[in-house]
């Protein structure tokens, strides 16, 4: 089972005894602030975890795989995640699992 916002809130409640509403709102706001920052075009650096970077891609030729029709892929801005060294070392030997 994958970790969700609900479980993260539950974890804060268990660990710090925050009230349930604050826990839930804080988890929600945590991801919302990151999204807002990226939306504004600014990189997010979470030391020990990793960086969320933005890349601007130029238009490039693409194709509709179903119809074979040529259609250009428009220029776009995308988010990339670059895990930090600490996170990388921690997951290297993770038990093989379940997607």
């Amino acid at each position: 089972m994958a970790l969700t916002k609900a479980e993260m809130a539950e974890h804060l409640f268990d660990k710090f005894g925050l009230n349930k509403k604050d826990s839930k709102d804080l988890v929600e706001a945590f991801f919302e602030e990151i999204k807002c920052c990226l939306e504004a075009g600014e990189q997010v650096k979470l030391s020990g975890f990793g960086n969320f970077d933005l890349r601007t891609k130029k238009e490039r030729p693409g194709r509709n795989p179903k119809t074979g029709e040529d259609i250009p892929i428009k220029a776009r801005r995308v988010v990339t995640f670059k895990p930090g060294q600490k996170l990388k070392s921690r997951v290297e030997t993770a038990p093989a699992v379940k997607d």
Partner: peptide, 29 residues
């Protein structure tokens, strides 16, 4: 709390489990 959220996310990945945050994205290995 912020530090614990990141720690909990790192622990989840370390266990080989996925993270799925609706509207944000998913982390996997």
């Amino acid at each position: 709390s912020v530090k614990e959220m990141l720690e909990f996310m790192a622990q989840t990945l370390q266990k080989g489990e996925r993270i799925e945050i609706r509207g944000f994205g998913s982390f996997s290995l």
